[in-house]
């Protein structure tokens, strides 16, 4: 059985996770109203049109906000504290939550340019998860 914290893909999210496994970050674009959004939904949350398509993101964004978690009783995170987790605003507009990795928590700040990396969670039975690190 997969670890409790791992994503459980469904028919709406599977393309997102499959793309991540290939090293691509994707979001959705509505051809009807023109909005870009994340997380994936079969109909656009702005207008309920089903004329939506997947687009590749540049993988670049900025930190909108974050916190440094210093206490979390749940494995595997209890072994990782302190760690930074926050909201990244993609260049294309949509926001996503992400652990902010490959940096010391004290080096994270709001407005920091970041770029996507792909990390495996949960070992061989796990998932590839897009995350962000400071842009290089």
């Amino acid at each position: 059985m997969a670890a409790w914290y791992l994503p459980i893909p469904d028919s709406e999210s599977e393309p997102f996770w499959n793309a991540a496994a290939e090293g691509r970050l994707v979001y959705q674009h509505c051809r009807s109203c023109g909005n870009d959004y994340h997380y994936p939904r079969a109909r656009c949350p702005h207008c309920w049109s089903d004329q939506v398509e997947w687009r590749d993101a540049s993988g670049r964004g900025t930190v909108y906000t974050y916190s440094v978690v210093r206490q979390n009783p749940m494995p595997p995170f209890r072994e990782r504290v302190p760690y930074a987790v926050g909201i990244v605003e993609l260049e294309e507009g949509p926001r996503m939550m992400s652990a902010l990795v490959e940096a010391r928590p004290e080096d994270i700040r709001i407005g920091l340019p970041v770029e996507v990396v792909f990390e495996r969670e949960g070992g061989d039975d796990g998932m590839v998860v897009p995350r962000f690190r400071p842009a290089r």
């Binding site: 994503p7 909108y64 916190s67 969670e121």
Partner: peptide
């Protein structure tokens, strides 16, 4: 700090390890 499991929209959050408190903290930080 038990979050919901990895179904639905939670699948895009919980794998990153946010705690309930950290979500409020993100608002304070902003």
């Amino acid at each position: 700090d038990m979050p919901p499991a990895g179904r639905g929209p939670g699948q895009f959050e919980n794998v990153h390890g946010p705690t309930l408190i950290s979500k409020y903290a993100m608002a304070a930080m902003r």
